[in-house]
Design a protein around this nucleic acid. Structure first.
Lengths: 131, 131
DNA sequence: TTCCATGCAAAGCGTTTGCACACAC
DNA sequence: GTGTGTGCAAACGCTTTGCATGGAA
């Protein structure tokens, strides 16, 4: 495998992700980092996001509405994606619940459940009110 | 809204989904139904799959590897998607576990969890052995 | 006859990739 | 100087859509 070399662009992407509680799409990252590096390309953003995800420095979340989302928060937590607006929310289940869910799922599945990737769906408060 | 009219193509799609325990992609449905209707187009398959999903006759599952998958099994159950091979498996949790998971998640989320859409990730038995 | 459904092809969208150039080491 | 990262643009995979035609009611 190739040796990793420093790049300002990658550092900027990581820094942005570290400082946000949202779960930005690649395009949102692109827009943000573009302010600092006006000539950065979307391809570079994607390459670095995937690189960071492969290295385990960020998490990549797949959502139903196409675009992936990225999260630099590595503490064990789940996500809820709003079926209405597509936003992704953190959900901090108590450790006991996490264990219970994993044990239940593991017992029913012929293989290994990767716990922290579990994705919940819902309707967020904002979308509930909007109706 | 327009009145729904019968179509052999849609009937065939529904019939195929009713008879399989897999969770076929749109393209798999297309390939299958094409045997009966050689001139059917992929667009028609997509239109009917979305139509059936909107009517609640089938479920549409979003997976991380791009393609959506379709499931005619409407009994309450969850899904596990294998991070390695992309296959989708049914997972029949005991009712008590489902209730526990929902209550836990609901308590931590500012909105409504849509229980049966919850998506687990894992490595299936087949991929575990293959390594 | 009235509309909905179909087939076809083009377009849409998010993402990946090939290539020449720039930059880290 | 060697090899990785970047910017650009083309290509990709999946899905949707516009339009003329075909079929259900």
């Amino acid at each position: 495998m190739p040796t990793l070399k420093y790049s300002r662009q990658r550092a900027s992407i990581k820094e942005y992700l570290d400082g946000t509680v949202e779960h930005p799409t690649a395009d949102m990252v692109y827009m943000k980092v573009k302010k600092q590096f006006p000539s950065i390309s979307l391809g570079t953003v994607y390459r670095n996001l995937n690189l960071l995800a492969d290295m385990g420095e960020i998490r990549k979340l797949s959502t139903p509405d196409g675009g992936d989302r990225f999260d630099a928060n590595l503490t064990p937590h789940y996500h809820v994606v709003c079926s209405s607006c597509g936003k992704v929310y953190d959900i901090m289940l108590p450790e006991e619940s996490i264990r219970h869910i994993n044990e239940s799922a593991d017992a029913c599945f012929d293989g290994d459940i990767v716990s922290h990737d579990t994705l919940f769906y819902g309707i967020c408060e904002h979308c509930k009110k909007g109706k």
